[in-house]
Write a protein that binds this DNA or RNA. Structure first.
Ligand SMILES: [Mn+2]
Ligand SMILES: [Mn+2]
Ligand SMILES: [Zn+2]
Ligand SMILES: [Zn+2]
Lengths: 143, 143
DNA sequence: ATTGAAAATGAAAGTTAATATCATTTAGCC
DNA sequence: GGCTAAATGATATTAACTTTCATTTTCAAT
């Protein structure tokens, strides 16, 4: 799904919720949709302020909350104390591996791991709704 | 390793670091060693205050930091915004599955998953130092 | 046992990211 | 254009840590 389509999903979500469209919200969302990193609120605010310097932190915060609600963004907590947001991945769910030296983040997906998780949960009587798998280590450049 | 042995490990760690033994520290550590939950600072403070009401939050905080440093405690972040500490597990490393309704925490370990993680990392040029695997879902009583 | 330097304690203050409040502005339906 | 609900942005509040600092305690050396 590209930025244009995402914007349409957002627009229809706003409509169903009786919310309004604003220039700030649109610009923040668009900027986020075009970013392909795991971006923090501060980073996104900085980006957004380059074109529209009077946008406030709270508006970025609220917009990302909204995007998370309607599934267009995913909030992630890697160990650095800041929430990071990433675009709904087109390849579906993935997990992360983070370099503890340079903070580089790589993504991977392993169906076998996911399946073994389900089985492990089942043995304990749990039904898995979601999961968090993060590997921490050194990337090729840092090891 | 039982509470008594842990206390000895702590004592020798203090010695090598030139730190001092105090009644507060000993009692906090002992209380923690005897707890077998994933306990937060507030919970531990509350427990400790039952016998010694004048102990402060900062001392509990500092003691748990110390125990984490010397490997006798592991700091965990499940999604609830509070750091939780658990005793060094005798069965070695394990992962967690958390009930999103009643917050019950179960533990599991799957060697095959760990191995697949390593392989996934290797493919991306990473060397894994540690990892975090948490499953969230419903326990048998809540599903 | 006394002493003195270094460390520990507990209360209070500071930090930081997240969240809420509120006066003002804006969007969108009539 | 006027009205009403929602959005904005500045500011305040919260919550979990983390640090500071005056006072107390430990412990090695007398
Ligand atoms: Mn990602
Ligand atoms: Mn555990
Ligand atoms: Zn790196
Ligand atoms: Zn449950």
């Amino acid at each position: 799904m590209d930025a244009v389509n995402k914007m349409e999903v957002l627009k229809s979500y706003l409509e169903t919720k009786g919310l309004k469209s604003t220039a700030q919200r649109d610009y923040i969302a668009d900027t986020f949709f075009k970013s392909n990193t795991h971006i923090s609120l501060d980073e996104l605010l900085k980006k957004v302020k380059r074109k529209t310097p009077n946008i406030g932190y709270a508006t970025v915060y609220r917009t990302m909350k909204l995007l998370t609600e309607c599934g267009l963004a995913i909030a992630r907590q890697f160990g650095d104390g800041q929430t990071r947001y990433e675009n709904l991945p087109q390849g579906g769910h993935h997990d992360h591996i983070i370099c503890i030296k340079c903070s580089k983040i790589a993504e991977f997906h392993n169906q076998k791991i996911e399946q073994l998780q389900m089985e492990a949960a089942k043995k304990l009587g749990f039904t898995v709704v979601n999961h968090k798998l993060e590997l921490y280590g050194y990337c090729s450049e840092c090891s």
